[in-house]
């Protein structure tokens, strides 16, 4: 972790001891009118762990993700981050606690340059973002860290383009740079490879693989191969419910998962 950044959140702000889980989800549920989008999901993310959530479209992955990030309040259960109950905490406060995240549909500042997108991300949740008397494009530590983040996702040479001029794949890379520049203590990725070509997918896969091993990652992905190749443990969901949790190999060989992904042709 870069010591030059005073706002890098501690991964254990409550002092609840090293090795405590980063994220604990307890019997979480979300009901939209008549639709039970998420139903009794529990999971524990250990420090440094890469955890995948897979499932078909409509399984409730994004809804689960949004409840962890704070966009959507659950109708049942609780979310704990870094040992603290955050179930009713706002998205912004969770971000300031150290949650970095990407959006399934790219959510960028379209009329700003790539560089400025990352700068705004870098200043997120700090008093630096409120400075109104200095030029924001100064050669300061914010710009420095922004360049580093852009280099880490391979976008440094595209930094002066507006977002609208980026390819879809580059926009996904920028999403990740913006999540990383705040030096998060947990990274939440919602279908980072959605809509990417095979080549772009490979780029993104190696990008995620090469992230620091100390950074815990929760990866939501429809594409099973990608999710299984990137994570230590995987949970499969269907219709809002938990199907199975295990190592990538266990989940790949699981009968129910095969039925879900291969169209139930093995069903007797």
């Amino acid at each position: 972790m870069n010591t030059a950044t005073e706002m890098a959140p501690a991964s254990d702000p409550q002092g609840s001891g090293a090795g405590a889980p980063v994220l604990v989800i307890d019997d979480l549920g979300k009901r939209y009118g008549g639709v039970q989008a998420v139903d009794g999901i529990s999971l524990v993310l250990e420090p440094g762990e890469r955890f995948g959530v897979i499932g078909p479209n409509g399984a409730g992955k994004t809804t689960l993700f949004k409840m962890i990030a704070g966009d959507v309040p659950p109708t049942a259960g609780a979310v704990h981050l870094f040992g603290k109950d955050v179930t009713t905490m706002s998205t912004a406060r969770r971000a300031r606690m150290g949650v970095g995240r990407t959006f399934q549909i790219s959510n960028l500042f379209r009329d700003m340059t790539v560089f400025d997108n990352v700068r705004v991300a870098a200043r997120g949740g700090t008093s630096k973002a409120r400075v109104f008397w200095m030029p924001q494009r100064a050669k300061d530590d914010v710009s420095e860290r922004s360049i580093e983040a852009l280099e880490s996702v391979g976008l440094a040479d595209r930094r002066n383009l507006t977002v609208a001029n980026l390819s879809h794949g580059e926009q996904r890379q920028l999403e990740i740079a913006m999540a990383l520049v705040g030096e998060p203590s947990i990274l939440l990725l919602d279908e980072p490879a959605a809509g990417l070509s095979a080549v772009e997918r490979a780029t993104l896969k190696s990008l995620i693989e090469n992230l620091p091993r100390t950074l815990p990652i929760l990866l939501i992905e429809h594409d099973m191969t990608l999710a299984l190749g990137l994570t230590d443990r995987v949970m499969c969901m269907e219709n809002g419910r938990h199907v199975v949790t295990g190592t990538p190999a266990e989940v790949r060989d699981n009968e129910t998962v095969r039925e879900i992904y291969l169209g139930r042709r093995d069903k007797k």
Partner: peptide
């Protein structure tokens, strides 16, 4: 200024700003 950039961030995406 950084404040101005923050405002343009709000203009383009409030949800993104909250998540930051």
């Amino acid at each position: 200024s950084p404040f101005g950039a923050s405002l343009r961030g709000l203009r383009d995406s409030e949800s993104r700003m909250r998540s930051l």
